[in-house]
């Protein structure tokens, strides 16, 4: 069993649950189960091409999964995944 921890913004789509548990062998499998169970999360985590949005990061036990094998990273019992967005923004027009 692995745990996925969600930031506040995404708990709206999981009936308020912050920590969710799944049986999954890879990060990808865990994310698939998450979005199958809570379909409204799909548009916030993945773009129209099914790719993880650029500002959404997945951490495995406090390490970005990109430093392992990305979404193909293997999981073991007791692992904790956290979905962590980067926050970006800025004004409309560049200074002239």
């Amino acid at each position: 069993m692995i745990t996925i921890q969600l930031p506040t913004a995404l708990r709206t789509f999981t009936d308020g649950q912050a920590d969710l548990q799944f049986e999954a062998l890879t990060v990808e499998a865990a994310l698939c189960q998450l979005t199958e169970q809570f379909a409204d999360l799909q548009r916030h985590l993945f773009d129209d091409n099914g790719k993880l949005r650029s500002f959404v990061n997945v951490y495995l036990n406090d390490e970005d999964v990109r430093s392992f094998d990305g979404v193909n990273t293997s999981l073991k019992d007791g692992d904790v995944l956290m979905l962590i967005p980067a926050i970006a923004g800025g004004r409309e027009t560049p200074r002239t």
Partner: peptide, 30 residues
Amino acid sequence: EVVGFYHSHPDHPAKPSQYDLEHSLPVYSY
């Protein structure tokens, strides 16, 4: 809980941009 984020718009109105919209998540106060 993390309830939101703030940022400044130097010499620009306090209105969100398209860029803000594309990089935001619901629920949070911006």
